[in-house]
Structure formats: structure tokens, C-alpha cells
Amino acid sequence: MAITSHDVARLAGVSQPTVSRALRDDSRVSAATREKVRRAAEALQYVPSEAGRTLSTRSTRRIGVIVTDLTNPFYPHVVAPLHDELRGLGYRMMLLTERSDEAVAGETLLDQSLDGVVLATATTDSRLPAQLDRRGMPYVFLNRDTGAPGEYASVVDNEGGGRQVAELLTGLGHRRVAGVFGSANTTTGREREQGFRLGLADAGTALPESRVVRGPFEYATGYGALPRLLGAAEPPTAVFCGNDVVAIGVLNAALAAGLRVPGDLTVIGFDDLPMAAWEAFRLTTVRHDLDELSRQAARLLVRRITGEADPAGERLVLPTELVPRATHAGPA
């Protein structure tokens, strides 16, 4: 006769649900109890049946994570803690990569093989959230949402971070400032630009469109933007970039143009990726807690799956702080 989880429960002296949670490394079960259950399972040579678990609970314990830009160094730093948090909550993570959200919609997400979805690269015009809503598939936004009311999202105070950069630059005396922002159909691009503009306006400084470039959050965007900005009638003395990857592109373009940073040009980033602190860059940037950004998204999604989340939506916003390093100074 086949060994069941009930046999393991009797040997370990715990309930059958505790056995199931312990063997999934559920953080709600103490380490001592998890170890006791594992020893009992090994002694009985018990192997959990994933198929049986799915049929009995109508739950796959799988979460899909959609990332459409794996070439961006930002995403590995949020995917890793997301994986760890979901594992601790008893779920397995499946990374789904395509060039757009719509490309992974279809059967991949809607065939009942997943309990929920994390949307990490959503745009304001994405149709995927509406499709998931129609199918009753729980999902959360990570880092970027659509800006619509009633969403479930783990995001950053992008506007506040933009204001912090504006305050730094105007405080240093910069008046000819430029912005290399993200795409207009991303909330991170829009909100960081809006905060920057509002902060500049408070100090009586304008940001004309002639000193603004928008594009994907990629190295090439920053590298290609700087020559355009330098070609203006009044080139900028400082550039605020939509993220650190764009900022590194601007830094390399400045080097190629023979400019000294920060002597000739101040460059500010956003996100504080680990590489921003490398001696090669020492980038002044806006920091937020990348690890917590992912972990709170995982917890929020599980609350949606279990019906514990606020039915009106939850938008969790992490604070930002300016990290001064070596790429900012007053205008020459």
C-alpha cells in the first residue's frame, strides 16, 4: 500500500495539513517542525504527489512572472528576491519571457496551470491585465503598473525621487538641466519625469522639451541621448536619467565626447543597482529597497490568491532616498 501524507503525519506527530505545509517549506511552520516532518517522510520513503495536490486543492502552487526585458540588469535584482519570498510562502515561480505582455497571454497564463501572475514590465496601454481580470486570475504589478485605480501593486515613490533629484541639482546651482526619461507608456517614466518637473518648478527652473529625451530604460537610450542634448543651443550642465542603466549610457557617451563627470557634466540615476556603486561608475542616484519591492509583491499576490487582500485594491509604495556619490557637482 502506498505511503500517504497521513502516514507521515502520524509518525511525526503533527496534522496532515502541517505535513503539506512543511514539505513546501512554508514559513508558517517552524524550522524544527519542518525538520521533524522531513525525517518522518524520509523514514517512510514518502514522495509528495504534485498532481494529487493540484487535484485535491485546485491549486498548482505555481506563480508566473512576466518579464519582457531580460537584457535590463534591473530585473535579475528583483526576480531573485521574488523567487525566494514565493518559495518561503509555499509557491514555485515560473519565469515567462516574451517581447510583450500580450505574447504570453493566451493559453500560457489562462489554462489553469498557475495560481497567480506577477507583471513586472507592464505598460499603461497593456491589454493583459483586463484579460486576467476577465478570467479571474489574481495578479499584481511589480515596479510598474498601469496607473488605473483599484490596482494591486508594489511600486516606488517615483515622483518623490524625481523631486529629490531636482532639489539636489537646483541647490547646486544648475539651471540648464536635461532629462533622459523612460518611455511615455510606463508609469515609472511618467512619474519620475513629473516629480522632476515639479521640483524644478518649485525652484523657478524650467525643463524645455528641447532638453528632454524619452525612450526604453536601456543603455542605448542614454548613450544616444547625450549627443543630441549637447547639440542644443544651450547644452545642459546636468542630466537626470530615468534609471541607472540609462545613466551609465550617458556616462559612457560623456567619456566618448571628452567631457569630465562631474567637472563638465553632472549625471544622476535612479534605482541604485549594485553596479551603480562600482568604482568604475560611483553614480549618484536615487535608492529604494529593491529586495523589499519584490518581497512585498509576492506577499500581496498570495493575499489576493487566498482572498485576504483588500477588495478595493492595494498600491504599496516604497520610499526613496538620494545617494550622493561621485557624479554630481555644481555647474562649471
Score class of each variant (00 low, 15 high):
Met1Leu: 09
His6Ala: 15
Glu191His: 14
Val140Met: 03
Asp289Gln: 05
Ala254His: 03
Thr146Asn: 07
Gly173Trp: 10
Leu265Cys: 07
Gln112Pro: 05
Phe270Ile: 01
Arg304Met: 09
Arg21Asn: 11
Val246Ser: 02
Arg192Gln: 04
Ala12Arg: 01
Ser56His: 13
Gly258Ile: 10
Asp157Lys: 10
Thr60Asn: 13
Val118Leu: 04
Glu167Trp: 06
Asn185Tyr: 06
Leu318Lys: 06
Ser100Glu: 10
Ile3Asp: 03
Asp115Ile: 11
Asp26Lys: 01
Pro236Val: 12
Gln131Tyr: 00
Asp289Met: 09
Val267Glu: 00
Val239Glu: 07
Ala22Arg: 02
Thr33Tyr: 04
Thr123Lys: 12
Asp291Gly: 12
Leu82Pro: 02
Ala326Leu: 08
Glu193Phe: 10
His328Leu: 00
Arg325Asp: 06
Leu44Pro: 01
Glu35Gly: 05
Asn158Gly: 14
Leu322Cys: 04
His6Gln: 14
Leu132Thr: 01
His328Gln: 02
Arg92Phe: 12
Asp69Thr: 14
Ile66Leu: 15
Gly182Gln: 07
Asp133His: 04
Asp133Pro: 02
Arg295Met: 11
Pro274Leu: 02
Leu290His: 05
Arg190Ala: 14
Ala201Arg: 15
Thr57Gln: 13
Phe141Trp: 02
Ala297Met: 12
Met94Gln: 14
Ala166Glu: 03
Thr306Val: 13
Leu318Phe: 08
Gly215Lys: 12
Gly242Tyr: 05
Thr221Lys: 11
Thr306Phe: 04
Val267Gln: 03
Gln296Asn: 13
Glu50Met: 14
Thr146Glu: 10
Leu172Asp: 08
Glu167Cys: 00
Asp289Leu: 10
Pro274Tyr: 00
Ala277Pro: 05
Val78His: 00
Ser5Phe: 03
Thr68Ser: 12
Leu109His: 10
Met94Phe: 14
Val246Leu: 04
Gly90Cys: 08
Arg38Tyr: 04
Val213Tyr: 04
Gly147Lys: 00
Ala103Glu: 04
Glu191Tyr: 09
Ala332Val: 11
Leu55Pro: 06
Arg87Ser: 15
Ala43Gly: 05
His174Met: 07
Glu167Asn: 06
Gly173Asn: 12
Val302Lys: 06
Gly88Gln: 09
Ile248Tyr: 00
Arg303Phe: 06
Arg28Thr: 13
Leu172Val: 08
Gly106Lys: 08
Asn72Thr: 00
Phe217Glu: 08
Thr33Lys: 08
Ala2Phe: 10
Tyr152Ala: 01
Ile63Trp: 07
Leu55Glu: 09
Glu314Tyr: 04
Arg134Met: 03
Thr170Asp: 06
Leu316Phe: 08
Phe281Arg: 01
Gly173Lys: 12
Lys36Ser: 13
Ala41His: 03
Leu273Gln: 00
Ala329Asp: 09
Pro236Lys: 12
Leu301Tyr: 07
Ser15Ala: 11
Arg282Phe: 04
Val250Asp: 02
Ala297His: 10
Asp7Leu: 06
Thr68Tyr: 05
Asn252Gln: 15
Leu89Gln: 12
Leu198Gln: 15
His174Pro: 05
Leu207Pro: 09
Ala2Thr: 13
Leu259Ala: 11
Val250His: 05
Ile66His: 10
Ile66Val: 15
Val239Ser: 06
Thr68Glu: 09
Ala298Lys: 12
Val65Tyr: 10
Leu132Lys: 02
Glu191Asn: 13
Ala122Trp: 00
Thr170Val: 11
Thr186Arg: 08
Gly224Ile: 07
Arg190Val: 13
Gly162His: 02
Ala40Leu: 10
Val250Gly: 02
Gly136Val: 05
Gly269His: 04
Val246Tyr: 00
Gly13Glu: 08
